[in-house]
Design a protein around this nucleic acid. Structure first.
Length: 189
DNA sequence: CATTTGATGTTCT
DNA sequence: GAACATCAAATGC
C-alpha cells in the first residue's frame, strides 16, 4: 500500500519565501470509487478533477470552510485513489512554520494534522494538479521505516467506512496526530 | 489527561 | 439544505 510506503519520505516546498520540509509520519489511504469515504466515490466533479489525474499528482482540497488538505494521487488516470498526508515531523523551515501557525503552542502542534501541516508549509489550492516530482513541491526518499514501527488504525473523522483500517503512522513519533482512544491499533504486517 | 462544542464556507444534492 | 478526510478553546477531571 502506497500510504504505508510514504511513511518516512520527505515533503519539501521551496518558494521565494524560503524552504520548508518535513518527514511524513502519518498517512491515510483513500481508495477508488468503491471506497465510500473517498471523494472519488461521487465521480468526477470540478473539485475532484485532479484526484482522477496521474500518480504523483497533488490533490489539494478545502474543508470546513478554513483548511486545506494535501494528498498525493497514487493510481492511474481515472481511478481516483490518493493518500492524505496527515502529519509531518519538521525538518527545515521551523521558523517559517511558527510564523504561519501563530496559535500553535508547542512545535508538535505545528504539523500534527492535515490542515495544520498545510498551513505550516503554506500549501493551498494553487498546488492542485502539481506533479510532485518537480519544484516547487516534491516528495523525496527519506528514512526507511521498518514494519515493526508502523501502526494501523481506522481513518479519522469519517462517517462512511469509518472502521476501515487505512490510517498508518510511525509508532511513538511525537508529531503524529492524536489517535481517538476508542480506535483499535494494529501492528503492520 | 480526555471530552465537548462552536466556527467556518465550499461542495454537491 | 446537509454534509464535510478540521481545528482550537473551554471544560472537567
Amino acid at each position: 500500500m502506497v500510504a504505508r510506503e510514504l511513511l518516512g519520505t520527505v515533503l519539501e516546498y521551496t518558494t521565494p519565501a524560503g524552504r520548508v520540509a518535513g518527514r511524513i509520519v502519518e498517512t491515510e489511504a483513500y481508495l477508488g470509487p468503491h471506497d465510500p469515504a473517498s471523494h472519488s466515490a461521487a465521480g468526477l466533479t470540478p473539485r475532484t478533477r485532479w484526484l482522477f489525474g496521474r500518480p504523483g499528482t497533488a490533490y489539494v482540497y478545502f474543508i470546513y470552510g478554513r483548511y486545506w488538505c494535501f494528498n498525493a494521487v497514487t493510481q492511474p488516470v481515472g481511478v481516483g485513489s490518493a493518500v492524505l498526508v496527515r502529519a509531518l515531523e519538521p525538518i527545515d523551515g521551523l521558523a517559517r512554520m511558527r510564523r504561519r501557525r501563530p496559535l500553535a503552542r508547542r512545535d508538535r502542534d505545528l504539523t500534527n494534522g492535515p490542515g495544520k501541516l498545510c498551513a505550516a508549509l503554506g500549501l493551498d489550492g494553487s498546488l492542485n494538479g502539481h506533479l510532485l516530482s518537480r519544484a516547487p513541491l516534491v516528495i523525496r526518499r527519506g528514512d526507511e521505516i521498518p514494519d515493526a514501527r508502523v501502526v494501523v488504525t481506522p481513518r479519522i473523522g469519517l462517517t462512511k467506512a469509518a472502521e476501515w483500517p487505512h490510517r498508518y503512522f510511525v509508532r511513538d513519533n511525537p508529531y503524529v496526530s492524536p489517535t481517538p482512544v476508542a480506535f483499535p491499533r494494529v501492528a503492520y504486517g
